[in-house]
Amino acid sequence: MKISKHPLLSVLLCLVLIIGLAVGCTSAKPDDQAGQPDQNSTPEPANPNVVLATTTSTQDSGLLDVLLPVFEQETGYKVKTIAVGTGAALEMGKKGEADVLLVHAPSSEKALVDEGIGINYQLVMHNDFIIVGPPSDQANLKNIKDLNEAFQAIADTESIFISRGDDSGTHKKELQLWKDAGVTPEGTWYQESGTGMGQTLIIASEKEGYTLTDRATYLANKGNLNLEIVLQGNKELLNIYHVMQVNPDKFPDLSVPINAEGGKAFVEFMINADTQKIIGEFGVDKYGEPLFTPDAGKSMDDLGN
């Protein structure tokens, strides 16, 4: 028996070699990136990994792609961005899975701050929500200025409304607006997409429905959509972003401790004057108008006036 010349072995060896080659050549890369920032002038923090839980809107709009390299360059931290709905981002904070949060659901954030989990809670910026709908505008929202009337009109005409349905900041805002209007959204016309904002806009466009969206995502997707802005400019439609670090004292038992220094550095970075200037200019080159308004140092009551 010639076991040594067995074909199976050579086939398996080839396989191992091929995969091994693909695997071996780069396997050390991620740790190097995390540990060694590329510039000599950059400081080297003891624990360079910062987990940022944020909403999909900050990532989808491209703002983080602009801000994070600056932060990493200045401080030497390496940010791991987990972009999820606001509900999930807050939940990550609650469980101590994230070091710092950048979110936009003030009413839900309040609970976290009250519990002492969210500390160093700072107003960063706002953009606004808008209601978009098909050009035919069957609920005639373009002629309505009052938000409550607008939502009642959608329900009365049973026009299709696409809800995010994902417990995100935008979804929470939408539910609040229905509640304020005294309408319980039910029926075949009210549909939950369960996906992100971009995807929800596409669904609304395809189904000729209305939806509530943040302006940034709408502008970024406008070219692919057959949707128009039908209502905007109300104070209730402000979309306010706060940043907060997760309190390390609340999670003494975690096997991987909260990176308090990293979280603090990120909060400070988001509200410093240079960063606020970048935020205020972001999007002008592409859309002709800024996507966000920097608000550091203001109070919530100052906004929208």
Partner: peptide, 24 residues
Amino acid sequence: GGNIKGYSRVLTTATVLEVSKGQF
């Protein structure tokens, strides 16, 4: 993986992200 840019982003998660950004 968390779809972290330059670190844990793979082809499928990158595709999902680009779709949600509207970059078809």
